[in-house]
Structure formats: structure tokens, C-alpha cells
């Protein structure tokens, strides 16, 4: 009875919405959850315009590379460059990849809107707060800088599985994947938004898109640059490279062998068309690359230039110019 009901329900669904039964060529995309909205937008638009099928998974940067290097994917998104171990895994399976930057993303340090003291902070001050040695020691704002109020310091940030955490710890603490552990860690930046917006003494870090959507509930902390100026995170400052060190490039890695399939080649061409690359990236809340980057990317794909520019690790302060250089 149950089975009958379920069967007839799903049968009805197919009668109503059934598509063509023929097996169609499909481009398989997976990878970083940060890059997911971009991949989703490309996939949706590409499928609407060409009729080719694209599927997008959400395995995370590391999980994506794992599958990619096993040869299961055509494209994987990454919020950091490929690591040495992952390069070895790919090499072991004979997977050659082409590295293409698709967008820039900023990480914002945020506080409660009523926080009047933390207007601009230096990387050193942020390191004082976030380094592993700070655990259980730095618990009050007045320990961060003379003149900060005597108020408890409550911290929120990305959980250790995320690329956001990896990049933040690398840029601030100097060592990837190392920080104090006594903060509210979450894989969902919306939790950080909630936490910081309900506590005057809180400080957190999250993806710029999350700040932009909640600008009424949060305030960003400007980052003091090497020349002493204070720069706040925005689409503009993350895009032109003045917001350092917390802006980072986002990548897609293309399986070079997959490019022999026309649908994959068409999908990559679609991504590397400036009209698509700029408008779609902007629409989902990230910082688009300049038009030049797409021409270089297309050329790189055409010449099948494989390998990574980053030699197995993140780099701090990668500007658009560096990214362009990486494609030449």
C-alpha cells in the first residue's frame, strides 16, 4: 500500500514534469562551498543557454580535490590553491589540471554596530587575538590595545573544516590551520552574523558576501595596511587589491583530459567569457576579475597549460596582477 502510493506519486511526478529519457552529456562540477554560488550560477546559465547538463556538488575544497584527483570530476572549485599532497594524488592518477582564477573574495572582520573602539586594527593586533598562544590568555579587549575598554572579548569565526578558516589563519597568524580554539566556530557564516550582531563585545570574521547581506546588523573593522592607511573591506577594495591581507582569489581547476569532450570545453569557454564571468560573479556577491583575466584564462586553456602557480600553498597579498601573471 505504501509502496503503491509512493510509486504512483512518483509516476505522477514524471508524467507531469518528465524530460527526455536519452542519456545526455553532463559536465560534473564539485568543490568548495565558497565557490558553490559561482558554480551554481554558471551551471544554471550554461544549461539554460546551451541545453548541456551540468551538476554541481558541495564537497568542500579538500573533498573536491580528492574526487578531482581520482578522475571523477571535470571541474572543481577551490577557495585556496591546490596543496602539495593533493598535487601528488593527482599526479599518481595521471590527472593533469589547469588552474583558473574565477573571482576575488574578501574576508571581513566584523564587530557589533555599537562597538565604538575597534575602527581600524592592524594584522599584529588581530594576531594577538587569534594566535594559538592567545587561548585562555587574551580574554579582554584592553589586552589587545592600550585604550580599548575593559570588556570581555567574545570571538566568532569559521570552523576548522572551511577554506575561510585556512586562509584567515594563514593571513593573520602566519601558519595555515592554526589558531586559538576557544571561540565559537561554525561552518555556517550566518551563525557568526547572529553571534556578533547580538553581542556588543564580540568580534568575528566571515566572507564579505555575508557582511554585505547583513550590513545593518554588523560593522566592519578596517585593516591597517603596511603603509599605515586603514582600508575597509568592500567589493571595490577587495577587487583592486588594496584590502590586504584578507582578500583572496577563488579558483576552478579543470581536468585537462575532460577538455576533449565538447561539452566541457563549451562550459569552460562559457566561464571564461567576460560578460558571463563578470555579471554572474557580481550577481552572487563576489568580486569579479577584470576582463583581461578571462582572455588570459581562455588562452591558458587553449594551450593546455597545466600545473599550479602557487607551489602548493596559499599566498598572502595576491593581487589581480599576480593572478594575471599566474595565467601567462
Amino acid at each position: 500500500m505504501t509502496r503503491l502510493l509512493l510509486a504512483s506519486a512518483s509516476a505522477a511526478a514524471f508524467v507531469a514534469f518528465g524530460g527526455p529519457a536519452a542519456a545526455q552529456a553532463t559536465v560534473t562540477v564539485d568543490g568548495s562551498s565558497t565557490v558553490f554560488p559561482i558554480s551554481e550560477a554558471f551551471a544554471e546559465e550554461f544549461q539554460a543557454q546551451t541545453g548541456n547538463r551540468v551538476t554541481v556538488g558541495l564537497s568542500g575544497t579538500g573533498g573536491g580535490f580528492e574526487k578531482f584527483c581520482r578522475g571523477e570530476l571535470d571541474v572543481t572549485g577551490a577557495s585556496r590553491p591546490i596543496r602539495t599532497g593533493e598535487m601528488e594524488a593527482c599526479a599518481a592518477n595521471g590527472i593533469e589540471y589547469i588552474e583558473l582564477p574565477v573571482a576575488m573574495d574578501g574576508l571581513a572582520v566584523v564587530v557589533h554596530p555599537e562597538n565604538t573602539w575597534a575602527e581600524c586594527m592592524s594584522v599584529a593586533e588581530l594576531k594577538t587575538i587569534w594566535e594559538p598562544a592567545a587561548q585562555g590568555v587574551i580574554t579582554n579587549w584592553n589586552q589587545v590595545r592600550e585604550g580599548f575598554p575593559d570588556a570581555p572579548l567574545r570571538l566568532f569565526g569559521a570552523g576548522t573544516d572551511s577554506g575561510t578558516y585556512d586562509y584567515f589563519t594563514f593571513a593573520i597568524n602566519g601558519v595555515e590551520h592554526e589558531s586559538r580554539g576557544d571561540y565559537t566556530a561554525t561552518e555556517d557564516d550566518n551563525v557568526t552574523v547572529q553571534g556578533v550582531s547580538s553581542d556588543v563585545n564580540a568580534l568575528g570574521f566571515l566572507g564579505l558576501a555575508y557582511y554585505e547581506e547583513n550590513a545593518d546588523k554588523l560593522k566592519t573593522v578596517a585593516i591597517q595596511q603596511e603603509d599605515g592607511s586603514c582600508v575597509s573591506p568592500s567589493v571595490e577594495t577587495a577587487g583592486n587589491g588594496t584590502y590586504q591581507p584578507l582578500s583572496r582569489p577563488l579558483f576552478v581547476y579543470i581536468n585537462a583530459a575532460s577538455l576533449d569532450r565538447p561539452e566541457v570545453q563549451a562550459y569552460v569557454d562559457f566561464m571564461m567569457t567576460p560578460e558571463n564571468g563578470v555579471t554572474l560573479v557580481q550577481e552572487v556577491g563576489y568580486v569579479p576579475l577584470p576582463a583581461e583575466a578571462f582572455d588570459l584564462g581562455r588562452a591558458k586553456v587553449a594551450e593546455r597549460r597545466t600545473g599550479t602557480y602557487f607551489e602548493g600553498g596559499s599566498k598572502v597579498g595576491v593581487s589581480i596582477e599576480d593572478l594575471l601573471a599566474s595565467e601567462q
Binding site: F14, G19, A43
Partner: peptide
């Protein structure tokens, strides 16, 4: 399992 899939 996938997250974005736009066909049945």
C-alpha cells in the same frame, strides 16, 4: 549526492 541538479 549533488547539490545543484537541474534535470530529472
Amino acid at each position: 549526492a549533488l547539490t545543484f541538479i537541474a534535470f530529472l
